[in-house]
Simulated assay, not measured.
Amino acid sequence: MLKNYSKYHDSEKFHQRIFKGIPGQVHGKVWRLLLGVDAKKAQNPGKFEELKEQAKLRSNQFHQIDSAVCWTFRNHLMFQKRYGLKQRGLFEVLMAYAMYKPEVGYGQGLSHVAALLLMWLGEEDAFWALVQLMEKEKYSMDGLYKPGLPQLEKLQEHLGDTVQCTMPTLSKHLEEQGVSLKTCTTHWFIQCFLDAVPFHLALRIWDIFILEGAHVLTTMAYVTLKLNKKRLLKMPQDHIREFLQVTLKQAWDQDDNIIVKHLQASKRDLAKRQCLLPPQAMPGQSCSLDQQPVNVPEQPVPAPTTLQGTETAQALEPLCPHPESSAPLAETPPVEPATFRPINSIQYFNPTKADMQSNAFLHTSPKTMPSVELLSTHWPLVLPTSTTPPPPGSD
């Protein structure tokens, strides 16, 4: 089927295969095909290397990106070693993208997206895959990170309207408890659920997201609230915030196939209610209560073919190896710069829109910020004068 992708890519059979889960050994190939990476790269020969050279001369975001790289999938085998091979690759991809789209630059959560791509793609392919996710209207991910955060605000407002439309009891309870979905769901969208669900489920969501586009994020947010509705209705304010921001990942006790069935059923339900995407993305349509919700289908779903992993790496529990890696994980503690605070390390952390735009997640000062010379020792990309190859064993 992959050999005849142009023939099968719009077929129902191909879509069904994606929903069942992409086998680990072809994950990268399928993502490349779905995102059109090869065509984009062919249109821009040598561009990635050129951007890396430009970053050496003009980038002003290496401190921010260096801090973000350190905290990205920090317990994952691929990214565990400080200044290791994959951390270097992630640093270069993010620096190159910041030069490619300076109006977007680097935004909080973008490192997780790039790191996920790097797990199955080489550096240049991961870069162009990231470009496609950001530029294509089907995904519109640049709006989650550019100044003003237009896509984030749009999706969150749409989620709030959808919950009020379809689950008025839950919407009223959240309002009475003084809980805003905007403050509790920010990391769901900017990290595309990579830190809100177990890693193996996140891969299934990402497969569907790359296949179908932005509506998968809002539908998954809707499914998350719907499946936990009874639990949330019994919680007071602080418990709701802690659950949605901190402990949600441990609450997914259903099989991945069941969650995907809920996702498919909710997609059909929201499409019938004309609530699948914000009104701006679907002109002339508005959320309607006239349609009845679609029940979850009863037919069995074939077992997934994805390789199951452990928790995604931002959690501080068991280390999670790459699905294709069988190497044992070292029990070395990660290097943690004292000046950076990731979202999920702070309970009840409610970033505002102003915080997101001003990069308030990064608390740095001239006294604690590493010097350019120190960073160039580890990141040869940063300064053009750093032509000496890295010391043996640094990879």
Rank of each mutant, 00 (worst) to 15 (best):
H9Q: 12
E12K: 05
I18E: 14
G21F: 05
G24K: 06
W31Y: 04
N44P: 09
L51F: 04
K52T: 14
D66I: 01
R88L: 03
E92H: 13
Y97T: 01
G105T: 03
G109V: 15
H112N: 14
A114V: 04
W128D: 15
A129V: 03
L130A: 10
L133Y: 02
M134K: 03
E135I: 07
E137Q: 10
M141R: 04
E153Q: 15
T169E: 15
L170M: 07
H173E: 04
E175Q: 13
G178K: 03
S180P: 07
L181Y: 02
T183W: 01
I210R: 09
G213M: 13
H215M: 13
T218S: 03
V223W: 04
L244K: 02
K249T: 10
A251W: 09
D255P: 01
V260S: 11
S266L: 05
R273K: 15
P279Y: 05
M282Y: 10
S286Y: 03
Q291P: 02
V296G: 06
P297M: 11
P300Y: 01
A303M: 08
T305K: 14
Q308G: 08
G309I: 12
G309M: 12
A313W: 06
E317W: 13
P321Q: 07
S326Q: 12
T332Q: 14
P333R: 10
T339F: 00
I343R: 00
N344C: 07
Q347A: 15
K353D: 15
M356S: 02
L362G: 00
T364E: 00
T368V: 10
P370G: 10
W379L: 11
W379M: 08
P384N: 11
